[in-house]
Nucleic acid binder design. Structure first.
Lengths: 229, 229
DNA sequence: TAGATTGTTAATCGATTAACAATC
DNA sequence: TAGATTGTTAATCGATTAACAATC
Protein backbone atom coordinates (compact mmCIF):
# COMPACT_ATOMS: atom_id res chain seq x y z
CA UNK A 1 0.00 0.00 0.00
CA UNK A 2 2.79 2.39 0.87
CA UNK A 3 4.76 3.97 -1.93
CA UNK A 4 8.30 3.49 -0.85
CA UNK A 5 10.03 4.61 -4.01
CA UNK A 6 11.89 7.70 -5.06
CA UNK A 7 9.60 10.37 -3.65
CA UNK A 8 9.85 11.53 -0.05
CA UNK A 9 6.65 11.58 1.97
CA UNK A 10 4.48 14.68 1.57
CA UNK A 11 5.27 17.18 4.32
CA UNK A 12 2.28 18.45 6.26
CA UNK A 13 1.12 22.00 6.48
CA UNK A 14 3.13 23.03 9.55
CA UNK A 15 6.32 21.80 7.91
CA UNK A 16 5.67 23.80 4.77
CA UNK A 17 5.00 26.94 6.74
CA UNK A 18 8.30 26.51 8.53
CA UNK A 19 10.15 25.88 5.27
CA UNK A 20 8.85 29.19 3.97
CA UNK A 21 10.17 30.87 7.08
CA UNK A 22 13.56 29.25 6.78
CA UNK A 23 13.69 30.51 3.22
CA UNK A 24 13.12 34.09 4.28
CA UNK A 25 15.77 33.92 6.95
CA UNK A 26 18.21 32.35 4.50
CA UNK A 27 17.65 35.13 2.01
CA UNK A 28 18.50 37.66 4.67
CA UNK A 29 21.56 35.72 5.79
CA UNK A 30 22.78 35.51 2.24
CA UNK A 31 22.22 39.23 1.89
CA UNK A 32 24.54 39.67 4.86
CA UNK A 33 27.22 37.72 3.03
CA UNK A 34 27.08 34.50 5.02
CA UNK A 35 27.87 31.24 3.27
CA UNK A 36 27.09 28.50 5.78
CA UNK A 37 24.49 28.06 8.49
CA UNK A 38 23.84 25.52 11.25
CA UNK A 39 20.48 24.02 12.14
CA UNK A 40 21.09 25.76 15.38
CA UNK A 41 21.08 29.24 13.86
CA UNK A 42 18.07 28.64 11.69
CA UNK A 43 16.18 27.31 14.66
CA UNK A 44 16.94 30.39 16.73
CA UNK A 45 15.87 32.71 13.93
CA UNK A 46 12.54 31.01 13.43
CA UNK A 47 11.92 30.04 17.01
CA UNK A 48 12.09 26.26 16.78
CA UNK A 49 14.58 23.68 17.99
CA UNK A 50 17.60 22.70 15.94
CA UNK A 51 16.35 19.14 15.81
CA UNK A 52 13.18 20.25 14.15
CA UNK A 53 15.06 22.22 11.54
CA UNK A 54 17.12 19.17 10.65
CA UNK A 55 14.08 16.98 10.57
CA UNK A 56 12.17 19.37 8.33
CA UNK A 57 15.05 19.65 5.92
CA UNK A 58 15.75 15.96 5.76
CA UNK A 59 12.05 15.33 5.26
CA UNK A 60 12.17 17.20 1.98
CA UNK A 61 15.44 15.59 1.04
CA UNK A 62 17.81 18.47 1.68
CA UNK A 63 21.19 17.41 2.99
CA UNK A 64 23.82 19.18 5.01
CA UNK A 65 27.42 18.39 5.79
CA UNK A 66 28.10 16.36 8.87
CA UNK A 67 30.35 18.93 10.32
CA UNK A 68 30.06 22.03 8.19
CA UNK A 69 26.33 22.68 8.57
CA UNK A 70 24.38 23.68 5.49
CA UNK A 71 25.50 25.70 2.50
CA UNK A 72 23.13 28.64 2.23
CA UNK A 73 23.14 28.67 -1.55
CA UNK A 74 22.33 25.00 -1.69
CA UNK A 75 19.60 25.36 0.90
CA UNK A 76 18.11 28.33 -0.93
CA UNK A 77 17.87 26.59 -4.25
CA UNK A 78 16.56 23.37 -2.73
CA UNK A 79 13.89 25.12 -0.68
CA UNK A 80 12.88 27.22 -3.65
CA UNK A 81 12.50 24.08 -5.67
CA UNK A 82 10.48 22.29 -3.01
CA UNK A 83 8.22 25.27 -2.41
CA UNK A 84 7.76 25.74 -6.14
CA UNK A 85 9.36 29.14 -6.43
CA UNK A 86 10.62 28.27 -9.85
CA UNK A 87 7.24 27.74 -11.43
CA UNK A 88 5.14 30.80 -12.13
CA UNK A 89 2.83 31.28 -9.22
CA UNK A 90 0.02 33.43 -10.49
CA UNK A 91 -3.19 34.11 -8.63
CA UNK A 92 -6.38 35.96 -9.45
CA UNK A 93 -8.42 38.05 -7.07
CA UNK A 94 -12.20 38.13 -6.94
CA UNK A 95 -13.60 41.31 -5.49
CA UNK A 96 -11.91 44.71 -5.76
CA UNK A 97 -13.49 46.19 -2.66
CA UNK A 98 -11.52 47.41 0.32
CA UNK A 99 -9.82 44.17 1.17
CA UNK A 100 -9.26 43.42 -2.49
CA UNK A 101 -7.63 46.77 -3.15
CA UNK A 102 -5.46 46.31 -0.11
CA UNK A 103 -4.24 43.00 -1.47
CA UNK A 104 -3.66 44.46 -4.93
CA UNK A 105 -1.42 47.14 -3.54
CA UNK A 106 0.29 44.74 -1.20
CA UNK A 107 3.38 44.24 -3.30
CA UNK A 108 4.90 42.07 -0.69
CA UNK A 109 4.32 38.69 -2.17
CA UNK A 110 6.03 39.64 -5.38
CA UNK A 111 9.25 39.33 -3.46
CA UNK A 112 8.11 35.80 -2.68
CA UNK A 113 7.58 35.03 -6.34
CA UNK A 114 3.81 35.21 -6.25
CA UNK A 115 1.73 37.66 -8.24
CA UNK A 116 -1.89 38.77 -8.60
CA UNK A 117 -2.28 38.84 -12.38
CA UNK A 118 -5.88 40.04 -12.55
CA UNK A 119 -8.84 41.03 -10.41
CA UNK A 120 -12.53 40.57 -11.17
CA UNK A 121 -15.40 42.72 -9.94
CA UNK A 122 -19.02 43.03 -10.96
CA UNK A 123 -18.98 46.81 -10.48
CA UNK A 124 -18.07 48.43 -13.85
CA UNK A 125 -16.80 51.48 -11.98
CA UNK A 126 -13.96 49.32 -10.66
CA UNK A 127 -12.77 48.12 -14.04
CA UNK A 128 -9.41 49.31 -15.31
CA UNK A 129 -6.55 48.32 -17.55
CA UNK A 130 -3.96 47.66 -14.93
CA UNK A 131 -1.63 46.04 -14.48
CA UNK A 132 -3.06 44.18 -12.86
CA UNK A 133 -6.32 44.72 -14.73
CA UNK A 134 -9.71 44.68 -13.02
CA UNK A 135 -12.12 42.82 -15.29
CA UNK A 136 -15.82 41.96 -15.42
CA UNK A 137 -16.77 38.53 -14.05
CA UNK A 138 -17.80 37.16 -17.43
CA UNK A 139 -14.19 37.17 -18.48
CA UNK A 140 -13.14 35.03 -15.55
CA UNK A 141 -13.54 31.62 -17.09
CA UNK A 142 -11.61 32.36 -20.28
CA UNK A 143 -8.87 34.09 -18.38
CA UNK A 144 -8.36 31.15 -16.06
CA UNK A 145 -8.21 28.67 -18.88
CA UNK A 146 -5.98 30.71 -21.15
CA UNK A 147 -3.46 31.57 -18.50
CA UNK A 148 -3.69 28.24 -16.71
CA UNK A 149 -4.50 29.88 -13.38
CA UNK A 150 -4.97 27.43 -10.53
CA UNK A 151 -5.33 29.59 -7.43
CA UNK A 152 -7.74 32.39 -6.53
CA UNK A 153 -8.35 34.78 -3.64
CA UNK A 154 -11.95 35.49 -2.65
CA UNK A 155 -12.49 38.95 -1.16
CA UNK A 156 -16.14 39.62 -1.95
CA UNK A 157 -18.98 40.49 0.44
CA UNK A 158 -20.22 37.60 2.53
CA UNK A 159 -23.45 37.22 0.57
CA UNK A 160 -21.66 36.50 -2.70
CA UNK A 161 -19.11 34.08 -1.34
CA UNK A 162 -20.71 30.76 -2.19
CA UNK A 163 -21.78 31.84 -5.67
CA UNK A 164 -18.32 33.07 -6.49
CA UNK A 165 -16.85 29.89 -5.15
CA UNK A 166 -19.02 27.77 -7.41
CA UNK A 167 -17.98 29.83 -10.40
CA UNK A 168 -14.34 29.44 -9.56
CA UNK A 169 -14.70 25.73 -9.20
CA UNK A 170 -16.41 25.34 -12.54
CA UNK A 171 -13.71 27.46 -14.11
CA UNK A 172 -11.23 24.86 -12.89
CA UNK A 173 -9.64 26.65 -9.94
CA UNK A 174 -7.92 24.21 -7.59
CA UNK A 175 -7.06 26.34 -4.59
CA UNK A 176 -8.82 29.22 -2.85
CA UNK A 177 -7.75 31.68 -0.19
CA UNK A 178 -10.99 32.79 1.38
CA UNK A 179 -11.29 36.12 3.20
CA UNK A 180 -15.02 35.94 3.78
CA UNK A 181 -16.32 34.61 7.09
CA UNK A 182 -18.32 31.99 5.22
CA UNK A 183 -17.24 28.38 5.49
CA UNK A 184 -16.94 27.43 1.87
CA UNK A 185 -18.18 23.92 1.53
CA UNK A 186 -17.35 21.88 -1.49
CA UNK A 187 -20.51 20.99 -3.32
CA UNK A 188 -21.67 18.58 -0.62
CA UNK A 189 -20.85 18.99 3.05
CA UNK A 190 -17.96 18.29 5.36
CA UNK A 191 -15.00 20.39 6.38
CA UNK A 192 -13.34 22.74 8.78
CA UNK A 193 -10.76 22.09 11.44
CA UNK A 194 -8.88 24.86 13.14
CA UNK A 195 -10.51 27.36 10.85
CA UNK A 196 -7.55 27.56 8.58
CA UNK A 197 -7.37 24.80 6.06
CA UNK A 198 -9.80 22.61 4.37
CA UNK A 199 -9.80 19.88 1.91
CA UNK A 200 -12.19 19.17 -0.87
CA UNK A 201 -12.60 15.64 -2.14
CA UNK A 202 -12.92 16.61 -5.76
CA UNK A 203 -9.69 18.50 -5.78
CA UNK A 204 -10.22 22.05 -4.57
CA UNK A 205 -8.40 23.22 -1.48
CA UNK A 206 -9.72 26.08 0.62
CA UNK A 207 -7.70 28.02 3.14
CA UNK A 208 -9.73 30.38 5.28
CA UNK A 209 -8.46 33.63 6.70
CA UNK A 210 -11.15 34.42 9.22
CA UNK A 211 -10.27 37.68 10.88
CA UNK A 212 -13.26 37.66 13.19
CA UNK A 213 -12.33 34.26 14.56
CA UNK A 214 -8.72 35.29 15.04
CA UNK A 215 -9.79 38.34 16.99
CA UNK A 216 -12.26 36.34 19.04
CA UNK A 217 -9.54 33.89 19.88
CA UNK A 218 -7.17 36.67 20.84
CA UNK A 219 -9.66 38.24 23.23
CA UNK A 220 -10.20 34.86 24.77
CA UNK A 221 -6.50 34.20 25.24
CA UNK A 222 -5.87 37.60 26.77
CA UNK A 223 -8.76 37.23 29.14
CA UNK A 224 -7.82 33.74 30.17
CA UNK A 225 -4.18 34.57 30.80
CA UNK A 226 -5.16 37.37 33.11
CA UNK A 227 -7.67 35.19 34.93
CA UNK A 228 -5.09 32.49 35.53
CA UNK A 229 -2.38 34.72 36.96
CA UNK B 1 1.39 20.99 41.41
CA UNK B 2 -1.88 20.54 39.58
CA UNK B 3 -4.80 22.75 40.48
CA UNK B 4 -7.67 20.34 40.80
CA UNK B 5 -10.24 22.66 42.24
CA UNK B 6 -13.30 24.42 40.90
CA UNK B 7 -11.98 25.63 37.57
CA UNK B 8 -12.01 23.43 34.47
CA UNK B 9 -8.77 23.07 32.59
CA UNK B 10 -8.00 25.85 30.12
CA UNK B 11 -9.10 24.83 26.62
CA UNK B 12 -6.48 25.10 23.91
CA UNK B 13 -6.66 27.28 20.85
CA UNK B 14 -8.35 24.76 18.54
CA UNK B 15 -11.11 24.20 21.06
CA UNK B 16 -11.78 27.91 21.41
CA UNK B 17 -11.98 28.34 17.64
CA UNK B 18 -14.54 25.58 17.47
CA UNK B 19 -16.56 27.04 20.31
CA UNK B 20 -16.81 30.29 18.37
CA UNK B 21 -18.07 28.36 15.38
CA UNK B 22 -20.65 26.49 17.43
CA UNK B 23 -21.85 29.82 18.72
CA UNK B 24 -22.44 31.16 15.22
CA UNK B 25 -24.35 28.11 14.16
CA UNK B 26 -26.43 28.24 17.32
CA UNK B 27 -27.35 31.85 16.67
CA UNK B 28 -28.59 30.89 13.23
CA UNK B 29 -30.50 27.89 14.56
CA UNK B 30 -32.16 30.04 17.15
CA UNK B 31 -33.05 32.52 14.44
CA UNK B 32 -34.82 29.68 12.69
CA UNK B 33 -36.88 29.04 15.78
CA UNK B 34 -35.22 25.84 16.96
CA UNK B 35 -35.08 25.12 20.67
CA UNK B 36 -32.94 22.02 21.03
CA UNK B 37 -29.93 20.66 19.21
CA UNK B 38 -27.94 17.40 19.28
CA UNK B 39 -24.18 17.11 19.28
CA UNK B 40 -24.80 15.38 16.01
CA UNK B 41 -26.30 18.42 14.34
CA UNK B 42 -23.69 20.83 15.62
CA UNK B 43 -20.98 18.51 14.42
CA UNK B 44 -22.42 18.35 10.93
CA UNK B 45 -22.77 22.11 10.72
CA UNK B 46 -19.19 22.75 11.75
CA UNK B 47 -17.67 19.70 10.13
CA UNK B 48 -16.46 17.79 13.16
CA UNK B 49 -17.62 14.59 14.82
CA UNK B 50 -20.40 14.53 17.37
CA UNK B 51 -17.98 13.15 19.93
CA UNK B 52 -15.76 16.16 19.56
CA UNK B 53 -18.65 18.53 20.04
CA UNK B 54 -19.60 16.80 23.26
CA UNK B 55 -16.04 16.78 24.45
CA UNK B 56 -15.54 20.45 23.69
CA UNK B 57 -18.71 21.40 25.51
CA UNK B 58 -18.03 19.26 28.53
CA UNK B 59 -14.51 20.63 28.65
CA UNK B 60 -15.87 24.11 29.34
CA UNK B 61 -18.45 22.76 31.73
CA UNK B 62 -21.55 23.00 29.59
CA UNK B 63 -24.03 20.21 30.16
CA UNK B 64 -26.74 18.71 28.00
CA UNK B 65 -29.61 16.38 28.75
CA UNK B 66 -28.94 12.73 28.46
CA UNK B 67 -31.70 12.20 25.98
CA UNK B 68 -32.93 15.62 24.93
CA UNK B 69 -29.68 16.98 23.56
CA UNK B 70 -28.78 20.58 24.38
CA UNK B 71 -31.06 23.55 24.92
CA UNK B 72 -30.00 26.19 22.46
CA UNK B 73 -30.66 29.09 24.80
CA UNK B 74 -28.62 27.51 27.53
CA UNK B 75 -25.81 26.71 25.14
CA UNK B 76 -25.82 30.23 23.76
CA UNK B 77 -25.55 31.91 27.12
CA UNK B 78 -22.93 29.47 28.37
CA UNK B 79 -20.76 29.82 25.27
CA UNK B 80 -21.11 33.59 25.36
CA UNK B 81 -19.98 33.56 28.92
CA UNK B 82 -17.03 31.28 28.26
CA UNK B 83 -15.93 33.27 25.23
CA UNK B 84 -16.33 36.52 27.08
CA UNK B 85 -19.09 38.00 24.97
CA UNK B 86 -20.53 39.67 27.99
CA UNK B 87 -17.55 41.84 28.74
CA UNK B 88 -16.90 44.78 26.44
CA UNK B 89 -14.43 43.63 23.83
CA UNK B 90 -12.90 46.79 22.47
CA UNK B 91 -9.89 46.89 20.20
CA UNK B 92 -7.80 49.66 18.70
CA UNK B 93 -6.28 49.71 15.25
CA UNK B 94 -2.82 51.01 14.44
CA UNK B 95 -2.44 52.13 10.85
CA UNK B 96 -5.26 53.51 8.72
CA UNK B 97 -3.80 52.50 5.38
CA UNK B 98 -5.51 50.18 2.96
CA UNK B 99 -5.73 47.18 5.23
CA UNK B 100 -6.61 49.37 8.17
CA UNK B 101 -9.45 51.05 6.32
CA UNK B 102 -10.72 47.70 5.17
CA UNK B 103 -10.85 46.53 8.77
CA UNK B 104 -12.55 49.74 9.89
CA UNK B 105 -15.32 49.29 7.39
CA UNK B 106 -15.60 45.59 8.11
CA UNK B 107 -18.61 45.83 10.37
CA UNK B 108 -18.74 42.13 10.69
CA UNK B 109 -17.22 41.65 14.08
CA UNK B 110 -19.71 44.01 15.66
CA UNK B 111 -22.20 41.19 15.28
CA UNK B 112 -19.75 39.14 17.29
CA UNK B 113 -19.62 41.71 20.04
CA UNK B 114 -16.21 43.12 19.17
CA UNK B 115 -15.59 46.69 18.15
CA UNK B 116 -12.77 48.89 16.85
CA UNK B 117 -13.10 51.94 19.06
CA UNK B 118 -10.29 54.02 17.58
CA UNK B 119 -7.57 53.99 14.98
CA UNK B 120 -4.18 55.67 15.11
CA UNK B 121 -2.13 56.91 12.19
CA UNK B 122 0.88 59.18 11.92
CA UNK B 123 -0.44 60.83 8.74
CA UNK B 124 -2.46 63.92 9.76
CA UNK B 125 -4.39 63.63 6.51
CA UNK B 126 -5.96 60.47 7.85
CA UNK B 127 -7.22 61.98 11.08
CA UNK B 128 -10.96 62.36 11.56
CA UNK B 129 -13.61 62.50 14.23
CA UNK B 130 -15.24 59.17 13.60
CA UNK B 131 -16.72 57.12 15.00
CA UNK B 132 -14.43 55.43 15.16
CA UNK B 133 -11.99 58.33 15.28
CA UNK B 134 -8.57 58.25 13.63
CA UNK B 135 -6.12 59.87 16.02
CA UNK B 136 -2.44 60.84 16.10
CA UNK B 137 -0.07 58.35 17.69
CA UNK B 138 0.74 60.57 20.64
CA UNK B 139 -2.76 60.06 21.95
CA UNK B 140 -2.39 56.29 21.96
CA UNK B 141 -1.07 55.79 25.44
CA UNK B 142 -3.67 57.93 27.18
CA UNK B 143 -6.47 56.39 25.19
CA UNK B 144 -5.43 52.88 26.10
CA UNK B 145 -5.17 53.67 29.77
CA UNK B 146 -8.37 55.67 30.02
CA UNK B 147 -10.51 53.17 28.18
CA UNK B 148 -8.79 50.11 29.57
CA UNK B 149 -8.01 48.75 26.11
CA UNK B 150 -6.16 45.44 26.16
CA UNK B 151 -6.07 44.35 22.51
CA UNK B 152 -4.72 46.03 19.37
CA UNK B 153 -4.52 45.31 15.65
CA UNK B 154 -1.31 46.25 13.83
CA UNK B 155 -1.80 47.15 10.18
CA UNK B 156 1.15 49.44 9.48
CA UNK B 157 3.85 49.11 6.83
CA UNK B 158 6.41 46.44 7.53
CA UNK B 159 9.15 48.90 8.43
CA UNK B 160 7.20 50.35 11.34
CA UNK B 161 5.99 47.10 12.79
CA UNK B 162 8.51 46.57 15.57
CA UNK B 163 8.46 50.19 16.71
CA UNK B 164 4.69 50.21 16.91
CA UNK B 165 4.77 46.96 18.78
CA UNK B 166 7.11 48.35 21.40
CA UNK B 167 4.87 51.37 21.86
CA UNK B 168 1.85 49.19 22.30
CA UNK B 169 3.58 47.06 24.85
CA UNK B 170 4.69 50.02 26.90
CA UNK B 171 1.14 51.35 26.76
CA UNK B 172 0.07 48.13 28.43
CA UNK B 173 -1.51 46.26 25.52
CA UNK B 174 -1.76 42.54 26.27
CA UNK B 175 -2.78 41.08 22.92
CA UNK B 176 -1.91 41.93 19.32
CA UNK B 177 -3.31 40.81 16.00
CA UNK B 178 -0.46 41.38 13.58
CA UNK B 179 -1.09 41.87 9.87
CA UNK B 180 2.51 42.70 8.96
CA UNK B 181 4.78 39.93 7.69
CA UNK B 182 7.22 40.68 10.49
CA UNK B 183 7.59 38.15 13.29
CA UNK B 184 7.02 40.31 16.30
CA UNK B 185 9.35 39.17 18.99
CA UNK B 186 8.80 40.09 22.56
CA UNK B 187 11.68 42.18 23.80
CA UNK B 188 14.12 39.27 23.73
CA UNK B 189 13.94 36.43 21.25
CA UNK B 190 12.02 33.23 20.84
CA UNK B 191 8.66 32.46 19.22
CA UNK B 192 6.71 31.35 16.27
CA UNK B 193 5.14 28.02 15.52
CA UNK B 194 2.67 27.46 12.74
CA UNK B 195 2.75 31.14 11.94
CA UNK B 196 -0.43 31.84 13.77
CA UNK B 197 -0.04 32.21 17.47
CA UNK B 198 2.70 33.24 19.74
CA UNK B 199 3.24 33.64 23.33
CA UNK B 200 5.18 36.23 25.17
CA UNK B 201 6.61 35.49 28.58
CA UNK B 202 5.91 38.92 30.02
CA UNK B 203 2.26 38.79 29.19
CA UNK B 204 1.67 39.94 25.62
CA UNK B 205 0.16 37.53 23.14
CA UNK B 206 0.69 37.94 19.41
CA UNK B 207 -1.41 36.29 16.73
CA UNK B 208 -0.03 36.65 13.24
CA UNK B 209 -2.10 36.84 10.11
CA UNK B 210 0.51 36.31 7.46
CA UNK B 211 -1.18 36.48 4.11
CA UNK B 212 1.97 35.77 2.14
CA UNK B 213 2.61 32.58 4.07
CA UNK B 214 -0.97 31.45 3.63
CA UNK B 215 -0.75 31.98 -0.08
CA UNK B 216 2.61 30.26 -0.29
CA UNK B 217 1.18 27.29 1.55
CA UNK B 218 -1.83 27.20 -0.73
CA UNK B 219 0.30 27.12 -3.87
CA UNK B 220 2.29 24.34 -2.37
CA UNK B 221 -0.74 22.26 -1.46
CA UNK B 222 -2.28 22.70 -4.89
CA UNK B 223 0.92 21.74 -6.61
CA UNK B 224 1.51 18.75 -4.43
CA UNK B 225 -2.00 17.39 -4.78
CA UNK B 226 -1.71 17.48 -8.51
CA UNK B 227 1.69 15.87 -8.47
CA UNK B 228 0.46 13.02 -6.30
CA UNK B 229 -2.59 12.12 -8.39
C1' DT C 1 -38.83 -1.05 29.04
C1' DA C 2 -36.52 0.12 24.70
C1' DG C 3 -34.19 3.54 22.25
C1' DA C 4 -31.37 7.36 22.00
C1' DT C 5 -28.07 10.55 23.44
C1' DT C 6 -24.79 12.27 26.62
C1' DG C 7 -20.28 12.24 29.21
C1' DT C 8 -16.08 9.87 29.73
C1' DT C 9 -12.54 6.52 29.25
C1' DA C 10 -9.35 4.10 26.25
C1' DA C 11 -7.07 3.79 21.63
C1' DT C 12 -5.15 6.09 17.78
C1' DC C 13 -2.83 9.33 15.34
C1' DG C 14 0.42 12.95 14.17
C1' DA C 15 3.64 16.18 15.46
C1' DT C 16 7.29 17.62 18.54
C1' DT C 17 11.16 16.71 21.43
C1' DA C 18 14.99 14.13 23.25
C1' DA C 19 18.68 11.04 22.60
C1' DC C 20 22.28 9.16 20.13
C1' DA C 21 24.83 6.77 16.51
C1' DA C 22 27.14 8.05 12.24
C1' DT C 23 30.63 10.86 10.25
C1' DC C 24 33.19 14.70 8.74
C1' DT D 1 42.14 11.85 17.07
C1' DA D 2 38.86 14.96 19.35
C1' DG D 3 35.07 17.86 18.74
C1' DA D 4 31.04 19.16 16.51
C1' DT D 5 27.17 18.63 13.78
C1' DT D 6 24.10 16.00 11.06
C1' DG D 7 20.43 12.43 10.25
C1' DT D 8 17.48 9.22 12.43
C1' DT D 9 15.36 6.49 15.86
C1' DA D 10 12.77 6.28 20.13
C1' DA D 11 10.00 8.78 23.68
C1' DT D 12 6.73 12.23 24.70
C1' DC D 13 3.02 15.04 24.20
C1' DG D 14 -1.48 16.71 22.75
C1' DA D 15 -5.35 16.32 20.07
C1' DT D 16 -8.68 13.50 17.70
C1' DT D 17 -11.39 9.42 17.26
C1' DA D 18 -13.65 5.27 18.74
C1' DA D 19 -16.06 2.75 22.14
C1' DC D 20 -19.12 2.30 25.75
C1' DA D 21 -21.24 2.79 30.26
C1' DA D 22 -24.57 5.90 32.40
C1' DT D 23 -29.14 7.68 32.13
C1' DC D 24 -33.13 9.99 30.66
Amino acid sequence: MIENSERTEAPGRPVVLRLARYLRVLEKLKGLGLVKVFSNNLGDAVGVTAAMVRKDLSQVGVQGNKRGGYLIDHLLSELRRVLGRDRGREVILIGAGRIGEALLSYRDFEGEGMRIVAAFDSDPGKHREGPPPVLPPDRLSDFVRQRGIRVAIIAVPEAQATTVFEELRSAGIEGVLNFTPVDLKCAAEGLSSSGCTEDCPEGCVVHNVNIGLELENLFYTVHFRKASL
